[in-house]
Structure formats: structure tokens, C-alpha cells
Design a protein around this nucleic acid. Structure first.
Length: 304
DNA sequence: AGGCTAAACGTGAATAAACG
DNA sequence: CGTTTATTCACGTTTAGCCT
């Protein structure tokens, strides 16, 4: 409760997920069906960074407010912490800067910075961070922004929120171009692709490079590039119909069920929980697994 | 000063029931 | 029937509050 609440001018949504090529093809088909067309859709692709979403608001080119996503409608004011991030522009470059622009992106901790930070912490007998994502999330929610300043955080921009005093770009690619001219960092791996076939190729290429990237990713985001098509596709409750996150296959590990306990929830609901022999997988230690969806567990195994 | 715990938050996943 | 809402849950980190 130490952070002031910020109501987002435009809600910050998440993305729907797909897990294999068939589901991605099905997404493309839904887009075609909705638009009632056979045209080849142009997509904008970018790596899906494993960090945390941020909204950064500029008025007359000056960074005035930065907020976490929160529940999508209301987030937390982390302006002072975001100001300490090296590649976040405090002032937008160029002329024709709109009166109000909200840049949205992902704050993350590069692998190299994470390793270096943990080496320092080891030397100082401090507790090590388990993975870059949580280290980034924790670093951003420091009450003392000088602590945040000492953490190797970085930003990649991936979109625009509120915009006043400027026409909305006609495509995602154009929006990224403009943000980049203002001085905002955009992923160098952003690419314009024609049709679902090129999306699948991109997926394979990036999958091969995944380990050599300087930051952790958990998938790829594909967005319908054309703003007018985006508008026609619209939104569902918590995600746009014009974008999808392709998630790389979850890592799997085997372990043993040690016990099964029944929890009583806040509303009195009973939920069986499997107590597991702890197992480290995908950057976290898993020691419990809910069994409230046991049919799913049996069918598809537990995903991390 | 250090250890421990509860609670908050961020991210992510799933189901049932209600809605349109 | 597909979408949306309400619940339930997982883990990692920070913080406050308590205890030793």
C-alpha cells in the first residue's frame, strides 16, 4: 500500500496463448473468419520477454508517470523506480511529440546482468535471486529507488496506450518505428511477416536462437499489423482478438506425490492439493500442485 | 540484528456459472 | 455456443510485524 494507485487511461490487457502450430493456424483462421476475407494477413512478430508490463506516460515529451499493470484497470505508481532504468528515455527525442503519449513495454533483467547481480549477492552473503523475471519484478517494487537504480533493468517497448495530439499510427510496425525515433528501445528482432507460414518460420528461427539471446523469452507475440484490421477485430474480456502469444513448450520434470491435503478456501471451497517432492523446473521450485482440476491434470500433465 | 510469518503484488493457469 | 466473470490456485519477492 506504499505505492499510489494509478487508473489506466486505457486498460492494460494480457494476451491469449497458443501452444503449438495447429493452434496458431487456428488463430489465423479465426482472424480471417472475423474479417470475412481470404487475404494474406500481415503480422508483426516480436519475442515475448519474460519480465513485467509497464505503462510510461509522457506529457509534452517528459516522463511524468510510470505504472505497473496491476489488475489491468488500476496499477501502481512506480515512476521514481522507472526513472532509474538506463534505457528509459526521460525525455522523448525529435519534434512533433504529442501532448500525451503512453508507451507500453516490458521491463526485464538481461541474463548477463542477472548473473552479475547474483555474483555480487553471493560475495555479500545475500540471498540469490532465483530467476531474472522475479528479480526484475522485485527490483521495480522497491520503496527506495536507489536500490532499483543498482539493479540491471532494461525496457523494450511494444505498444502505445493513450495518445493525445497525434494521429494513431496506421500499423503496429509504424508505431514501433515512431517509438524508436523518440528514443524508446524496440526489440531488434521485431519483424513484419506475411501470413501464418512466415509466422511459423519466424518461430523456428527464434526458437533456435533462444538460448543465445541476451534476455529470457517464453514465446513469441504475433500481432495483426494493420490498425484498421485491429479495430475491426476488437477485444474480448482480457485480450485483443488481433494478437496472440505463442508459448514455447513448457519444461517438464518428474517428481513424486508425497501427500494429498485438502485446503479450505476463503469461501469454504475444498481443494485437494498434492504435496510434491520439490523439483526445480523452469526457474522455479515446485512443491505443491492443485488438484482442483484433476481431469485436466490427468489428461495433459501439469504445465509450468 | 536476525529469523520467521503473513500479506501484498505480479505473472500465469484452470474451472464453473452467468451472460448475450 | 462463444464469451465473460468469479473463483481457485502456483511461485518469487518485498515489506511489516512479531519474536528471540
Amino acid at each position: 500500500d506504499k505505492f499510489t494507485q494509478v487508473t489506466h487511461a486505457m486498460p492494460m490487457l494480457s494476451l491469449d496463448n497458443v501452444f503449438d502450430e495447429a493452434e496458431l493456424t487456428a488463430f489465423n483462421q479465426r482472424v480471417l473468419d472475423r474479417l470475412n476475407t481470404d487475404d494474406v494477413i500481415t503480422y508483426a512478430a516480436e519475442p515475448k520477454l519474460d519480465g513485467l508490463a509497464i505503462s510510461i506516460r509522457y506529457e509534452n515529451g517528459l516522463l511524468l508517470q510510470a505504472a505497473t499493470r496491476g489488475d489491468g484497470a488500476v496499477g501502481e505508481d512506480v515512476t521514481e523506480n522507472v526513472r532509474t532504468i538506463r534505457n528509459v528515455p526521460l525525455k522523448l527525442h525529435g519534434k512533433n511529440i504529442p501532448q500525451v503519449v503512453e508507451i507500453r513495454g516490458e521491463i526485464y533483467m538481461p541474463k548477463a546482468g542477472f548473473e552479475k547481480l547474483n555474483q555480487q549477492r553471493l560475495a555479500n552473503n545475500e540471498k540469490l535471486f532465483v530467476n531474472p523475471r522475479n528479480a526484475a519484478a522485485g527490483s521495480l517494487r522497491q520503496l527506495d529507488s536507489s536500490v532499483t537504480a543498482s539493479r540491471p533493468l532494461a525496457l523494450f517497448c511494444y505498444g502505445l496506450g493513450e495518445l493525445q495530439g497525434m494521429e494513431r499510427p496506421s500499423s503496429h510496425t509504424e508505431a514501433m518505428q515512431i517509438i524508436s525515433e523518440w528514443g524508446g528501445a524496440v526489440s531488434p528482432d521485431t519483424q513484419q511477416l506475411k501470413g501464418v507460414d512466415e509466422c511459423l518460420e519466424y518461430l523456428h528461427r527464434l526458437g533456435e536462437r533462444r538460448a543465445s539471446l541476451s534476455y529470457e523469452i517464453d514465446g513469441v507475440v504475433f500481432k495483426v499489423d494493420d490498425s484498421r484490421l485491429q479495430e475491426r477485430l476488437g477485444f474480448v474480456s482480457r485480450a485483443p482478438r488481433w494478437a496472440i502469444a505463442y508459448k514455447f513448450p513448457a519444461q517438464e520434470e518428474s517428481t513424486q506425490v508425497v501427500d494429498i491435503e485438502v485446503q479450505v478456501g476463503r469461501t469454504g471451497a475444498l481443494t485437494p492439493v498434492a504435496r510434491l517432492q520439490p523439483v526445480f523446473v523452469g526457474g522455479v521450485t515446485v512443491s505443491n500442485a492443485t488438484l482442483h482440476n484433476e481431469d485436466e491434470v490427468r489428461r495433459k500433465d501439469v504445465r509450468t
